[in-house]
């Protein structure tokens, strides 16, 4: 077992929809996909974004793309035009998630 940051086994892209953000997380190799499914749960992502995401986190699986899609509700201070944040559209939340630590063999 080795503890690594998610960025070593996955890449990601994020974007906005109203006050919600979605983060697509893609396994760098197919064999990492089951690890993502097991460890990168909606609950962990919600906890990871404490202080940023104030709503529900939903997770969707795309095994065909070795990917998970997370939708984070209420995480953009009102959304693109309203938000006071430097990143009002959550474009950098992709790598914020990739800071998360997971265990791999």
């Amino acid at each position: 077992m080795k503890r690594v940051r998610l960025i070593e086994v996955a890449h990601a892209r994020s974007g906005d929809k109203g006050n919600a953000c979605n983060i697509g997380v893609i396994a760098r190799k197919p064999e990492y996909y089951p690890v993502l499914v097991e460890q990168v749960t909606a609950e962990r992502v919600k906890e990871h974004f404490t202080g940023i995401c104030f709503g529900q986190v939903r997770r969707y699986e795309l095994p065909n793309l070795n990917s998970l899609n997370f939708v984070l509700e209420e995480c953009l201070d009102g959304g693109g035009t309203v938000s006071l944040r430097a990143d009002p559209q959550g474009k950098t939340y992709s790598t914020a998630l990739l800071r998360m630590e997971i265990d791999i063999d």
Binding site: N22, G24, N69
Partner: peptide, 16 residues
């Protein structure tokens, strides 16, 4: 495949 996958996942909700 990586660049296209990133874009397919961009700004989507339920992928089904």
């Amino acid at each position: 495949v990586a660049s296209v996958t990133e874009q397919l996942l961009y700004e989507i909700g339920n992928p089904r």
